[in-house]
């Protein structure tokens, strides 16, 4: 019906999408991840990154960390919707805590062709204090951790070296209130 309406479709010109990291404690039971992912897709929210692991075997609890984008009201709505899920104990926006710590881990495999590239890579790896996991003739694998932003920067710097092949995996951010 809206196509024939002269009423303007409200454009949320002032919407401020913010990156938020949500930390969710859940009962570790079948279907819980599907419930959470389904909630996001069904209601049109974004998942930028997702991490799930059992954190308490005895109490059978998992911690799920979700990085999402949205204006503040949407984030509060996501939290409220998450807390309605039966197996969810709590859902917290880390940004709302007075103090929290965030980290991500990334494994990068780099193939290079010449000595010059190798030197540059080594240099960056040193600056970012990444750990060498493997090194063979023309392949090196690093492990780097820290905030997602730090990892982004490292990858951006690597990008400035022409002619190398990079393959990587990231855990997505995880975090804790302190």
């Amino acid at each position: 019906m809206s196509s024939t309406s002269v009423y303007p479709t409200p454009i949320n010109a002032f919407k401020q999408s913010k990156r938020s990291v949500l930390s969710v404690i859940v009962d570790n039971e079948p279907g819980i991840l599907a419930r959470i992912v389904g909630l996001f897709s069904g209601r049109g929210y974004n998942i930028e990154a997702l991490n799930v692991t059992v954190v308490d075997v005895k109490k059978n609890l998992s911690r799920i960390t979700i990085e999402t984008l949205g204006e503040e009201r949407v984030i509060s709505q996501i939290i409220a919707q998450l807390e309605k899920l039966v197996p969810v104990h709590s859902a917290t926006n880390l940004a709302n805590l007075s103090e929290s710590y965030e980290a991500e881990i990334c494994l990068v495999k780099i193939e290079f062709e010449n000595e010059e590239q190798d030197q540059k890579i080594l240099n960056f790896a040193d600056i970012y204090r990444s750990r060498t996991v493997q090194k063979r003739e023309n392949i090196v694998v690093y492990e780097i951790s820290g905030t997602s932003e730090r990892i982004n920067k490292f990858l951006d710097d690597l990008d400035t070296i022409g002619g190398i092949k990079v393959e990587l995996v990231r855990s997505g951010p995880i975090g804790l209130g302190i």
């Binding site: 009201r73 509060s76 709505q77 409220a80 919707q81 807390e83 309605k84």
Partner: peptide, 11 residues
């Protein structure tokens, strides 16, 4: 009673 109904459509 439903927290998610608060501020969902109208503040």
């Amino acid at each position: 009673i439903d927290q998610s109904s608060i501020n969902k459509n109208v503040k």
